[in-house]
């Protein structure tokens, strides 16, 4: 076994994913404690160039793995075979990767070929006694567990976007391209269908912006729609807004409407009757904007703004657009 930590990077359209870069930086930071060297690796066509960006984050050795059968599209069989073949040659001490949709799919397969264990969806990494300890949520985040891979290499998948990106230091990476021999993949990718533009169901929405009676008219709901658009979210409403006829019932969140479970819930001009709270209490983050400082919604909100909706919402929408397009 070597003392390499391999960071498996992902890329798209010739660019490395930001979460891969974050992982590279995190590995570089931990390398000292493990007395290890970090290597970045990417599987697939056309990522050699993209791997250059790891240099400034403390990793100078990068490998683009190619194999006959790898195409621009993800193929579970081919990715599994290519990565595990290469890892069997390299024999690293640890393999870090992201549990993106594709990562979750093929990394357990790679681990099995290497006859080791894999921890998926970690949200924190520490080092104890020279081994990596991963913390991961279980029971849908209702509990956490610290776990260790006792096999070798230690393979851990990290949930995307949990580590921030530190400032770049200005190093330069040398990227090699390695071609490995793999068996022809048994799965055929017949087609890749792009996301259809569709109205997201409230119950499945990740981000919801809801308006209440304080919106005052159906026309004013455009403020809510604009903010939802800017956030890539869906429009919700309180019962009061629905009853007032500002928006159809399909948008109602609460006891007699939909029960939602988004990552972010933005309540605009909603006082927070228990009826409404019952429908959105499991939202991970709650933002409330209301001119009434005593509105019960503030007791549930992680971030509350006391102020005038019609002034704040356009400014907020504009700022979010800027951040997202940057």
């Amino acid at each position: 076994m070597g003392n390499d930590i391999v960071v498996v990077c992902e890329g798209d359209a010739g660019r490395l994913k930001k979460y891969s870069l974050e992982l590279v930086a995190k590995a570089a930071e931990m390398a000292t404690a493990l007395d290890a060297t970090v290597r970045a690796v990417a599987v697939g066509k056309g990522l050699a160039e993209a791997l250059q960006v790891v240099g400034p984050y403390g990793v100078t050795r990068a490998t683009a793995i190619d194999a006959p059968g790898l195409t621009g599209h993800y193929n579970s069989d081919a990715a599994t075979a290519a990565l595990s073949t290469w890892l069997q040659q390299v024999q690293p001490m640890a393999v870090l990767s992201s549990t993106s949709a594709h990562g979750r799919d093929y990394l357990p397969r790679v681990a099995t070929r290497l006859k080791t264990g894999f921890i998926s969806d970690a949200i924190a990494l520490t080092v104890t006694d020279g081994r990596l300890v991963a913390r991961r949520p279980i029971y849908a985040g209702k509990a956490l567990v610290d776990c260790v891979v006792t096999g070798s290499p230690q393979m851990i998948g990290i949930r995307p976007n949990v580590f921030g990106l530190p400032a770049a230091t200005g190093g330069v990476a040398t990227v090699e391209t390695v071609t490995v021999e793999i068996a022809p993949p048994r799965e055929t990718i017949r087609e890749v269908v792009a996301a259809a533009q569709r109205v997201v169901d409230l119950t499945e929405a990740e981000i919801i912006v809801s308006g209440g009676r304080a919106m005052g008219s159906s026309d004013n709901f455009r403020y809510i729609r604009d903010l939802a658009d800017a956030l890539g979210g869906t429009v919700g409403a309180s019962r009061a807004a629905v009853d007032a006829g500002y928006i159809p019932h399909a948008h109602q969140v609460g006891q007699t409407g939909k029960t939602v479970n988004p990552t972010l819930y933005v309540a605009c001009g909603i006082s927070g009757a228990i009826q409404h709270l019952a429908g959105m209490r499991t939202a991970r983050h709650i933002v409330a904007i209301n001119k009434d400082a005593d509105a019960p919604i503030f007791a549930r909100a992680d971030f509350g703004i006391v102020g005038d909706l019609f002034t704040i919402l356009p400014i907020l929408t504009e700022k979010i657009r800027k951040v997202r397009s940057a």
């Binding site: 681990a111 006859k115 080791t116 264990g117 894999f118 921890i119 300890v133 949520p137 279980i138 985040g141 209702k142 509990a143 956490l144 567990v145 610290d146 776990c147 260790v148 891979v149 006792t150 096999g151 709650i286 400082a293 503030f298 549930r300 909100a301 992680d302 971030f303 509350g304 703004i305 006391v306």
Partner: peptide, 18 residues
Amino acid sequence: HVVLQQFSLPPDRPAGRK
């Protein structure tokens, strides 16, 4: 190949800011 060491509960939601 994987050992679970310790379970914990997620920290309480910190008091929101206003």
